[in-house]
Design a protein around this nucleic acid. Sequence first.
DNA 1: CAAAAGTATATGCGTATACATCTAATGTTG
DNA 2: CAACATTAGATGTATACGCATATACTTTTG
Lengths: 128, 128
Amino acid sequence: MAKAPNEEQLATEWHELMGRFRRLLCSLDRELESKHGISASDFEVLQLLAEAPKGKLRLHELGEHAHLTQSALSRLVAKLESGGMVERFMCDDDRRSVFATITAAGRKRYVQARPTQRAVLRAEAQSV
Amino acid sequence: MAKAPNEEQLATEWHELMGRFRRLLCSLDRELESKHGISASDFEVLQLLAEAPKGKLRLHELGEHAHLTQSALSRLVAKLESGGMVERFMCDDDRRSVFATITAAGRKRYVQARPTQRAVLRAEAQSV
DNA sequence: CAAAAGTATATGCGTATACATCTAATGTTG
DNA sequence: CAACATTAGATGTATACGCATATACTTTTG
């Protein structure tokens, strides 16, 4: 990006970025939902957990990497738990904290959904 | 962007883009809401109308440029109308269509909000 | 060590959005 | 021109999110 693009240019870029972003997010949501029964946000969280050392992160750590507010993350993890893809349990070191761990079923779902997600990203990247 | 970036790279870029996008959209919403009482989406629609030839567009035309679904746009325009920033009236050529026009108050609000929006965009552009 | 401040998560509530469907108006076709 | 298809917009419904706050636990402080 240029050093000091004029403001109209910035505004136009933002408008276009917003368009691309929303289209891509919509595609992701639709493809992941229809083929794997998960949303794009679900996928992000599953991915973070699947890539974590032991498939295990405190919610607070998850929140630092997922692009969600604390409340949204709390509910999302609760939803994933009720879907059997994640489990929550107390952290003994600090009993305010809660660990989220990815289950075998969750990992399987993630592995299946991954090519779908990558394909959508690739398609969008090529269309630009 | 490279011709055939590998998939992990794409996924990482997407993750980062999502982060930047959400932060920016949140900043915009908060700044515009606190200083001018409008959301980022409100601003987008006001901008489209303010820049339209006669400050006048059919909802369907608005929808082609705003990054919103038809239903979201319909409600958004209704909200702007109840806030006195926009007016709706029938189109005589095609009585299914509805024109949205920006009012003097709406244009004033847009002009006031514009520097705020541009400042947020500029701040984000510089932080990258 | 008791009280106050801080931290991690959950939840009540309001709002924005998407999807599906409805209504009204227009176009098309036999 | 009557029946059907299409189009523009509105609305019922469900969901996801953010903000504010509540709850439970931990750390700091006097």
